[in-house]
Design a protein around this nucleic acid. Structure first.
Length: 799
DNA sequence: TTGTCGCGGGG
DNA sequence: GTGTACGCGACAA
């Protein structure tokens, strides 16, 4: 492999060492404000100028300038209105033009385009991507200077403020803010609310917003953050401030008010859940403030879950519990109950809101490091990198900067030639119960293949994408080693884990970049297909080689294989077999021993249960875990599948009979049979369609005497004897247990017991899950029943 | 039944 | 000046 060169490090990190940049605010005219943190309590704002630039495919549209257009370095260039430089290579976008004032540059290019006839664009942004590269001013500045955010800073050096609004409802047009909790990573924790002011109505809310803005300015954080900040708190705050005519001065410079920027639908920020009659708000608007970065922890959560896929949901409370950051005395209040609780027990709501901001801050520290680390690499604002897709939002800017740094012309977008995109391989090789299971997988298969076979975009003359992947992989390994060597909980460890996470995201998006035709400049479907073809071949090779080692294949998916090893093997044997298979693979494709399990229930592709050697049950896939499951079903599945994998077959049957009996005798509390529903129709909408189609959640509302409800309300319902739908109130102390026994017995059988069907012959299954307590006369004794494993696919069939 | 759209979050 | 995934439920055909 090639030695690292300074050039490739400049591609990845930029080249200017200016430390401590925490925010950049640039104007089209070439003025830029740069905030730099020099110490814990010192932030300076530097006023600078940069030379706005654009990259054009032709100088034709600037010919009208005559002598006012000069080549860079020419003697007359100093007085020239616009200068240019022709980049090397064969790329399409080859003229780097610049001016003292970006508005002049824009005006002259537009004048030329209009003079050419045909188009009369009002803004450069309307020109085609094959005619021009015209970045937002901050990015022009960062690309041209080689600077990035946060050099020399650790994540905890940032001054981060979390704030959380408590409101009377979700609709900013008619509901109010009555409380704002504020917290920083430096120990501030404060609740501002309307009660403490003694004011009422508009005056109280306006006063609250003013006090909040004053606290932000006084505290002067670098970052404002919260969970769903862009989707709720900022738009709500902006709307209330507008309605109440309160100047909202939250930034470090400029006029009051939040400015908007467009953002795609991907992160779904602003949507008005107002219900009918309410003006639809534009989707995909985000807010920007000079001098402070606005960070939404929901973005970090989505990015994390994109790879990890192990989150129970994306709500703050569930996340905090999942990551173990919820305090033991955490106050919980249902969203819809917050205001009512405030009127009765204000201190509970204050506690609750402080718990919210505390968890948001912890969550940010836990998952926000990757975006922080990306901001030390890519030439974009931190807040943009925090919500950007890794391919179009990060790799693309890195490549554009790399080409300009190399003085190389950029290619035009590759047109879509209709080539079909081909995908990964997925095989279910056997279903049922297997023992002594191991998982072997290739970490980062696709980028490894890109590196191994030097597969990059055809138009990438510099080979920059594959070079970036090389550097990212090497430096990620180094960061992982540094993290491991650092003490747990230390800044050193956190920083290096964040770098590693960021690099992993970028490495894994390199393949997606290739396939994103029309979205990324260097997209190349054929290259992407070459990668997946190699991937399918490698998976097949791994499967056949493992089978030759004597193991039984269970499931193979993209880059990993579950299989069962023969009786008598110990862990050393397992590792040795995987190592022998790994040795047959190309050097950069690293097959790893990922885990070993006592047993596995293979149900369908991507749906299985595993029992670890320390007796933990892992359920994967919608067949085994879903938010829709009734609690009793979840309980039953856990115990029945647990018994199955522990080889306690009578236990499986006992779990079923016990649950059936608990339902039949109504020993099961009603809370165990409720299911969750979200009311997506308002009461009026439901009345309109009720005649044609009745739906359980709404019928439950009506039966409970609730004639009206809002959009988005979450309810718990169950089916009562006689088929009536009933609303379940968690806070109710009495429990009549009037649920529909026959219905829930069917649910137990058809939705839950059926998940174990692959583990048995049909006869044995019927015996184990007999409808009554008396197994049929012909049935075998329970302890004679053995689980089965059914082969579905021979190793030779995996190609 | 099958296909398409829209959601995930916040009070 | 953006742009995502994936699996699911709701709704329409």
């Amino acid at each position: 492999m090639q030695e690292p060169t300074p050039r490739e490090d400049a591609w990845l990190w930029g080249w200017d060492a200016t430390p401590g940049i925490v925010s950049v605010w640039a104007e089209r005219d070439g003025r830029v404000l740069v905030w730099r943190r020099l110490g814990r309590d010192e932030v300076i704002c530097e006023r600078e100028r940069f030379r706005p630039w654009a990259l054009l495919s032709t100088l034709g549209d600037l010919r009208h300038l005559g002598d006012a257009l000069r080549e860079e370095g020419a003697p007359e260039a100093v007085q020239a209105k616009i200068t240019y430089r022709e980049l090397s290579g064969t790329g399409h976008l080859r003229f780097l033009v610049s001016a003292h004032d970006g508005r002049v540059l824009e005006a002259e290019i537009l004048a030329g385009v209009r003079a050419r006839g045909g188009k009369t664009p009002g803004r450069l942004a309307e020109l085609g991507e094959d005619e021009i590269v015209w970045l937002p001013p901050e990015e022009q500045y960062l690309v041209a200077t080689g600077r990035t955010y946060f050099r020399g800073l650790a994540f905890d050096d940032l001054h981060r403020m979390q704030f959380d609004l408590e409101t009377t409802g979700l609709n900013a047009a008619r509901e109010r803010i009555f409380l704002i909790a504020v917290r920083t990573n430096r120990g501030l924790a404060r609740v501002l609310d309307v009660a403490e002011s003694g004011l009422q109505g508009d005056t109280a809310e306006a006063d609250l917003i003013r006090r909040f803005a004053a606290l932000v300015r006084e505290t002067d954080p670098d970052v404002l953050e919260n969970h769903n900040l862009h989707g709720f708190d900022l738009p709500f705050l902006a709307r209330r401030a507008q309605i109440l005519k309160v100047p909202l001065m939250l930034g470090r410079a400029g006029a009051p008010g939040l400015r908007q920027r467009n953002a795609g639908r991907g992160y779904g920020p602003v949507r008005d859940d107002a219900g009918e009659g309410e003006a639809e708000r534009e989707r995909g608007v985000r807010y920007i403030i000079p001098g402070r970065e606005l960070i939404d922890t929901l973005d970090a959560v989505r990015r994390y879950d994109f790879a990890a896929r192990d989150l129970p949901g994306h709500g703050l409370k569930a996340l905090a519990r999942h990551f173990g950051i919820a305090a033991p005395d955490r106050e919980y209040i249902e969203g819809a109950q917050v205001y009512a609780t405030w009127q009765r027990e204000p201190d509970r709501v204050r506690h609750y809101a402080l718990d919210d901001v505390t968890e948001a801050g912890e969550l940010s520290r836990l998952l926000g490091g990757a975006a922080f680390a990306m901001a030390t690499m890519a030439p974009r604002r931190y807040e943009r990198l925090a919500d950007a897709g890794p391919a179009t939002g990060i790799l693309d800017p890195l490549l554009v900067r790399a080409y300009l740094y190399a003085g190389e012309a950029l290619p035009a977008f590759t047109p879509h030639d209709g080539t079909q995109h081909t995908g990964a391989a997925l095989y279910l090789c056997a279903s049922g119960v297997a023992r002594r299971v191991i998982k072997a997988d290739v970490s980062s298969l696709y980028p490894s293949l890109m590196r191994q076979y030097r597969i990059g975009p055809r138009s990438d003359r510099l080979g920059a994408l594959v070079a970036l992947v090389d550097r990212l992989v090497a430096q990620r390994l180094a960061a992982k080693d540094r993290a491991k060597a650092a003490p747990p909980g230390s800044t050193e460890r956190h920083t290096n884990e964040a770098i590693s996470a960021a690099m992993k995201i970028l490495v894994n998006s390199a393949y997606g970049y290739l396939g994103a035709v029309g979205l990324t400049r260097f997209a190349d479907v054929e290259a992407a297909n070459a990668v997946t073809a190699h991937g399918r071949a490698i998976l097949g090779q791994i499967c056949r080689a493992l089978a030759a080692e004597g193991v039984t294949l269970l499931e193979a998916d993209t880059d990993g294989v579950y299989c069962a090893v023969p009786e008598g093997w110990d862990e050393a044997d397992e590792r040795a077999a995987v190592a022998r298979v790994a040795a047959q693979l190309p050097p950069l494709v690293r097959l790893e021993f990922e885990g070993r399990y006592a047993a596995m229930l293979s149900h369908e592709t991507k749906n299985y249960a595993l029992l670890t050697y320390d007796d933990h049950l892992i359920l994967r896939g919608v067949a085994f875990r879903s938010i829709k499951f009734e609690p009793f079903g979840e309980t039953f599945l856990n115990s029945a599948v647990g018994c199955l994998l522990r080889d306690d077959i009578p236990g499986v049957s006992a779990a079923y009979r016990a649950m059936a009996q608990a339902i039949r005798r109504r020993e099961l509390p009603t809370a165990q049979v409720v299911s969750r529903a979200r009311l997506t129709k308002t009461s009026a909408q439901y009345y309109a369609v009720r005649a044609t189609r009745r739906e359980a959640p709404y019928e439950a509302m009506l039966n409970a005497g609730r004639a009206t409800w809002g959009h988005g309300e979450r309810v718990l319902i169950y089916r009562a004897a006689g088929g009536q739908h009933v609303l379940w109130d968690e806070s109710r102390s009495d429990d009549r247990r009037d649920y529909d026994v026959a219905h829930y017995l069917r649910v137990l059988r058809d939705n839950y017991a059926v998940r174990l069907a692959r583990a048995f012959t049909p006869e044995d299954y019927a015996t184990l899950f007999a409808a009554d307590n008396q197994p049929s006369l012909f049935a075998v004794p329970l302890d004679a029943i053995r689980p089965i494993l059914t082969p579905l696919l021979a190793p030779e069939e995996i190609r």
